[in-house]
């Protein structure tokens, strides 16, 4: 699979340098996938294929691992990664309404990014802040006791930082 994007080519070169620095390639698939997601931001098919060839494992195995772990993303993420906790405590305290509000405001489904790539929306399992349920995080910053009415305020906070537009 040719990598047309020169930016991607540079990223894959960085990944290759990392792979070459490993003492052994055996059993390093997950480590390399982590690194690839760090560098690229997500794991597009051509990157997965590239990793398969570099590590000498079938592409099917790479794809199987990537789709098994929810940490790995096949779709690109936005600049601001919104994660809504759907753990038990958050769920019973109305997390679904928060997710629905984000979907409506951003016009995305969970797992997707907005067209301008400013925001992406995901659901995650317990973040260990059940006392603050329902909880969301944006690029790791935690917001507790979120109500649907707060959603717009949170979005605007990040848009103000960036000057982007929603949707």
């Amino acid at each position: 699979m040719p990598v047309a994007d020169t930016d991607m080519a540079a990223k894959l070169a960085e990944l290759d340098a990392y792979i070459d620095s490993l003492p052994t390639k055996e059993g390093k698939l997950i480590t390399v996938l982590h690194k690839a997601q760090d560098i690229i931001g997500y794991l597009p098919f051509d990157a997965q294929h590239h990793i398969a060839r570099r590590l000498g494992v079938p592409s099917s195995k790479v794809y199987g691992v990537v789709t098994f772990y929810s940490f790995f993303n096949i779709k690109p993420k936005g600049k601001y990664k919104i994660a809504c906790c759907m753990g038990t405590a958050c769920f019973v305290r109305g997390a679904q309404a928060i997710v629905d509000e984000f979907k409506k405001r951003l016009s995305v489904e969970t797992g997707e990014a907005t067209k301008d790539m400013l925001f992406s929306l995901d659901t995650i399992r317990c973040v260990g802040a059940c006392g603050l349920a329902p909880v969301i995080s944006v690029n790791g910053k935690i917001y507790g006791r979120v109500a649907p009415d707060d959603v717009n305020k949170i979005i605007e906070e990040y848009m103000a930082k960036d000057g982007g537009s929603v949707g």
Partner: peptide, 25 residues
Amino acid sequence: CNKVQSVGVYSAVNRGFETVIGTAF
């Protein structure tokens, strides 16, 4: 496919109820 034939077409894709024995991508 993977161990005996070393071809590697198949892998379990996704997890839980969504699991399917599929091909790469």
